[in-house]
């Protein structure tokens, strides 16, 4: 469990980090919380020449409200998100998702930016990011661009980030009106990662009917995805048990589910359907 040799630098600013990365974007890696990268390095499955530790750039860690948006700095830790009183009141899906991640040590070190950039097929944040229609603010040498969550996750461990780019901020439109959230997860008994994770974000009208639904599911496919079938089946309907049940049946539509030693693809889909239903029920119950 000893990584191959590597260098380590601590930039003082994001600009410096980008300059450092630009030297050789393929063999230089950004280090945030290190809780995905370091394990891979210890197994020598990743062998970067240089780590650029952005985890110490203070200005990259924040949670704030700005206009109708919530802005989250990329190196904000899971714990900071889990314990944010602000988020608990204005966007409870984020703390709920954060709380489900790993254990206390992991949450103290791991960052939301690292998690999204790593895009582990069983990572929790991608589901929440999709459900909240988050936007990723990406900076590279001389450029800044904004990518929607739906376009950000490309494939297994693959995002829209290009070598040399850094995810700087996550932007979320402040939920308004009668919204309700829930995050429901089946943790793998060994790793704690999501066998299935379902992030639900519903907006209800005055009558309690579903005005809009955005649902992100992780753990099932090679990347997290929006459960469009479920969303459609909820939108415009009264959220009674039957509607929810029928809608949840669409949790895996069009997804070729993973299978591993713990769960076959059939069973994963079953879990996704059941927990989608339960997550919707849990969200509705908060209202």
């Amino acid at each position: 469990m000893i990584p191959a040799q590597f260098d380590y630098q601590v930039p003082q600013s994001l600009e410096e980090a980008i300059r450092l990365l630009a030297q050789d974007p393929d063999s230089i890696k950004v280090l945030a919380g290190g809780h995905s990268l370091i394990p891979a390095m210890k197994l020598r499955l990743a062998q970067p020449q240089l780590l650029v530790d952005i985890g110490r750039i203070k200005s990259l860690s924040y949670i704030k409200e700005e206009g109708d948006q919530i802005l989250i700095g990329a190196t904000t830790t899971h714990y900071e998100l889990e314990s944010s009183e602000l988020l608990k009141s204005i966007c409870p899906l984020l703390p709920a998702c954060a709380k489900s991640i790993g254990d206390v040590q992991v949450r103290n070190k791991g960052t939301i930016g690292g998690s999204l950039a790593h895009s582990d097929p069983a990572g929790d944040w991608p589901a929440a990011a999709l459900a909240l229609n988050a936007e990723m603010v990406i900076v590279g040498p001389g450029l800044e661009r904004v990518v929607k969550a739906a376009d950000f996750f490309v494939d297994l461990l693959t995002t829209d980030l290009k070598p040399g780019e850094i995810l700087r901020e996550i932007r979320i439109k402040k939920p308004t009106g009668r919204f309700c959230h829930a995050y429901q997860k089946v943790p793998h008994p060994a790793s704690g990662f999501a066998v299935v994770g379902v992030a639900v974000n519903l907006v209800l009208n005055g009558a309690g009917d579903c005005e809009a639904a955005t649902i992100g599911i992780t753990g099932v496919g090679t990347k997290a995805y929006r459960a469009n079938g479920v969303e459609t089946a909820l939108t415009g309907r009264a959220l009674d048990a039957a509607t929810i049940e029928v809608a949840a049946e669409h949790a895996c539509d069009g997804v070729d589910a993973n299978s591993d030693l713990y769960a076959s693809s059939e069973y994963r889909c079953q879990l996704a359907r059941v927990h989608t239903r339960r997550a919707i029920e849990a969200a509705v119950a908060t209202r």
Binding site: H188, P189, A190, S191, F193, D260, L261, Y262
Partner: peptide, 24 residues
């Protein structure tokens, strides 16, 4: 939870505590 799994070629595929589940 627990099972040491070798695949058909004799590769030990439950090779870390990420896969080999010990009760907590």
């Amino acid at each position: 939870y627990e099972e040491v799994v070798y695949d058909e070629q004799g590769q030990l595929v439950s090779g870390t505590l990420m896969d080999y589940a010990l009760p907590r």
